[in-house]
Design a protein around this nucleic acid. Structure first.
Lengths: 111, 111
DNA sequence: TGGGTTACCCACCAAAAGGTAAGTACTATT
DNA sequence: AATAGTACTTACCTTTTGGTGGGTAACCCA
């Protein structure tokens, strides 16, 4: 255990809170897949949809809305017809990329 | 991006699979809290229950069963009355500890 | 005039996850 | 005889999560 992760009993509650929050942020069937797709470049709604085969539109819209609300993804609508909406992973969203990379390593053993 | 995480389009599908599996393994409202509690020492059922306030017995039993099934936790029953059952995090279970530590860092920003 | 394009919304449904409250088995203790 | 202690099980319920299949607006092009 690294020194800064040592904890007193007083810290345990907040540790639980933080872990629970983090789990909320990264969980869901598609959440990390979407973030991983956005890691390289800004994508339009339709591009994300095609990049995440199997996801329903309802869920995709909902996930994107949540990611924007959480401050992880920036959304830009161009006032065009047909509509053009672009989503990009911002700085806050990028903080979870190491989690994805670590899960890729850890997850291997569970396949 | 570290070199070993560079990926071709052929690898994308398996990457998705691995991420999905990892999410399955670590998600749920209480899963990581339980693992985190078991990080230091073997605990009896009742100790875990008291260590995770708020969890229902049904869910705790179910979670422990799953952790054993996933090969992350070892269970030992002593043939005593009143019963004594001990749970401990094994090597496979310990592979997710770095995920917890990383989530503690990342999660801070989302509180 | 009518279909194509894009990014959604809506009503409804099914499955999974989680919670509640009660009960069980077996023994020791009062 | 009744109670306490331990590690569960069971039936029932609510909430959350995800899926299905339709609809919409606005403009362009044929």
């Amino acid at each position: 255990m690294t020194p800064e992760l040592k904890q007193t009993s007083e810290q345990i509650i907040s540790t639980e809170l933080i872990i629970k929050k983090a789990v909320e942020v990264i969980c869901g069937k598609w959440r990390l897949i979407i973030i991983h797709l956005l890691r390289e470049k800004t994508l339009r709604y339709g591009e994300i949809k095609r990049g995440v085969p199997g996801i329903s539109e309802k869920v995709l819209v909902h996930e994107l809305k949540q990611l924007v609300e959480l401050g992880m993804v920036d959304k830009q609508s161009f006032g065009e017809v047909p509509p053009r909406v672009e989503y990009s992973l911002n700085e806050k969203g990028r903080t979870v990329l190491p989690v994805i990379d670590l899960l890729r390593e850890v997850g291997q053993a569970f396949i």
